[in-house]
Design a protein around this nucleic acid. Structure first.
Lengths: 178, 178
DNA sequence: AGAATTACGGACCATGAGTCCAGATGACGC
DNA sequence: GCGTCATCTGGACTCATGGTCCGTAATTCT
């Protein structure tokens, strides 16, 4: 089912228009089964998302990786963000489906997870928890598909996007001043 | 009709659940009329938004106002953002209705308008047009209802939000470095 | 093998955006 | 004042979609 959903989402220009009926049909399964397994459309989307995000999670835990647990916070932060950028560039439809679907994005499990990670990393660069909280939201805001898409449409390349992201990080994560 | 829509939106905790039927009924008008006047749900929402935003627009054009056309860009920028913050704090439901309704927020007329304004102001503080474009998106990202709501829920007061916003501006709008 | 429990699928329901047309309302000429 | 024509209006209707429900099939247990 996850695979079917993923394929369908990737193959349309308007992921919001992919219905649960279609996904069920494509997965060769009844609608009831789909809902029993995932609870709701959001649940399904989250599950697809989680499965896609898994390699990234692994990479973050693998000691020795360029974004592994031992890397200094500042570098790791940049690394993670660039990885997320790549993820969004590689899975635009899926991300769109999740980010543009009305329901509270900030409550979604993967958002909370990434936010937490970023918050910790930012905090380690010398900011209070509160201020790191805010900064993490801002960094994630900078990565919204809508924004990225818009910038791409305006002619920015992947590399330029990466550079702009790094710039944002540097501006945003300096130590508190007051 | 605008007034009816506004009232209904303000009076519910889940603005997404306010239907066009309800609005039509509350306005004492047929659904057909509603759609003829605004084209679609989005159109109506935009219209309500625009009407609410009008005083703010006026203030921006009034010479002598603290955010008027003659104020130095850096100050004006902060002023405008604080005004927008106030607006969102004062109209949380309306803003939620518009920001959380799936359809491309960045294409909405008011978003484009504010973005343009911010971009110009940022550019005047010594950044290239491209970089100002990005910065403007980030600033608006910092003002998303979802984020603001979350921070409020975490216990931040209006004043703290204002201060955090100012901090973001200062971090974000310095001159380009590379 | 037969009973009991669980899982399945797709018909069914509820809701809400957007359409459409029969009739009301108003403008205009006589 | 009245008939005709054009325009506008309201709400019944269509259609799409998320989510539920239940008869039946599969599976497990004895």
């Amino acid at each position: 089912m996850l695979a079917a959903a993923e394929t369908l989402l990737a193959g349309t220009t308007s992921p919001a228009a992919v219905s649960m009926d279609e996904i069920a049909a494509a997965a060769g399964v009844g609608k009831g089964t789909l809902f029993r397994a995932f609870g709701s459309r959001d649940g399904l989307l989250d599950a697809v998302f989680a499965s896609r995000l898994d390699p990234l999670r692994q990479e973050l835990n693998r000691p020795g990786s360029p974004v592994g647990p031992d890397v200094p916070a500042a570098d790791r932060l940049v690394g993670v963000l660039l990885l997320l950028l790549d993820f969004k560039l590689d899975n635009p439809r899926l991300t769109t489906a999740r980010e543009m679907n009305g329901t509270a994005l900030l409550q979604a499990p993967h958002y909370r997870w990434v936010h937490r990670l970023l918050q910790d990393l930012v905090a380690k660069t010398g900011r209070t928890a509160d201020s790191a909280d805010v900064a993490a939201h801002l960094l994630l805001g900078a990565l919204r598909v809508e924004v990225i898409t818009e910038l791409q449409a305006a002619g920015m390349t992947r590399e330029q996007l990466g550079r702009y992201l790094e710039d944002v990080v540097h501006r945003l994560v300096g130590p508190d001043e007051h």
